[in-house]
């Protein structure tokens, strides 16, 4: 089974984010990045499917040079090779544009299965995988929590709201968007890290992918990014932990009357 895993690099969860000077995105210099969380689960799922059914796992990442780090992590964990989509015209694409570029790269690979995360932690479109399925003409299922692969089809467990699930079947080739918690992602071993050094990373720009400016034309654009205006009337407490504890209990007892 040939599996493509779309993996995005996003700012690290505990990184302190600042707005850029134009207030249209964040300041990316001096920032630490990591693999988007659901994508780590998707990668793990791809590796397990390969271990069970044989085949190949190909990482596909669109991002600037720094994204190499995310790609290397995936290769160290066991992916076989990677496609790195990097071009100045790829900067600040919307979900549609990203999906167009990914589709152009993936089409050439003709995979049996494409996995994406269900949502990115930075843009949070929750769209790229589904658009990609449409562009590739593949059936898809979203928010997946279990995959059972058969010869020519998949049986998947789809998460619904409020603790419900649903089984679904779909023919291969297909695309799935993976939800966090589907498995326990592995750590890279030292051997894996060493082995990753010789795994191929193919760089692809708009030219190689025959992508015109028109195909990447945004459908939506961000005009401003800003700190949320706080509407809440939260009362904040300061002092030593002991003082805070006492003030809080007093408020809970005498003001909120919940104790």
């Amino acid at each position: 089974m040939k599996i493509i895993i779309c993996l995005k690099q996003v700012p690290a969860r505990d990184a302190v984010l600042r707005l850029n000077s134009a207030s249209c995105w964040i300041e990316e210099s001096d920032l630490t990045f990591e693999v988007n969380e659901p994508d780590l689960y998707a990668l793990e799922e791809a590796l397990r499917l390969k271990e069970k059914h044989g085949g190949e796992v190909v990482v596909c990442t669109l991002g600037p040079a720094r994204a190499q780090q995310a790609i290397k992590e995936a290769l160290a964990k066991g992916a076989d090779r990677a496609l790195h989509l990097d071009d100045n015209v790829f900067i600040s694409l919307d979900a549609f544009g990203i999906a167009q570029a990914l589709a152009a790269a993936i089409r050439k690979e003709d995979p049996d299965l494409v996995l994406t995360g269900l949502q990115s932690d930075d843009s949070g479109f929750a769209q790229t995988g589904v658009i990609l399925a449409e562009l590739l003409g593949l059936p898809h299922a979203t928010i997946i929590m279990e995959i059972q692969a058969q010869e020519k089809s998949l049986k998947v467990k789809r998460e619904l709201e409020a603790g419900w699930f649903e089984w679904m079947e779909l023919p291969l080739p297909a695309l799935l968007t993976i939800q966090s918690g589907i498995n326990k992602p592995r750590y890279a071993t030292l051997k894996g890290i060493m082995g990753a050094k010789s795994k191929p990373i193919q760089k692809l720009g708009a030219g190689e992918l025959a992508l015109t400016a028109e195909a990447l034309e945004p459908r939506q654009k961000i005009t401003r990014v800003y700190t949320p205006v706080k509407a809440a009337k939260t009362q904040f407490f300061e002092g030593s932990p002991k003082e805070i504890a006492e003030t809080l209990l007093d408020k809970l007892k005498n003001e909120a009357r919940v104790l």
């Binding site: 707005l19 932690d121 939506q220 005009t223 990014v225």
Partner: peptide
């Protein structure tokens, strides 16, 4: 965006 740390104004094109 960024899991609610920031808001973004978005326009259609």
């Amino acid at each position: 965006v960024f899991q609610g740390k920031f808001y973004a104004d978005v326009e259609f094109v």
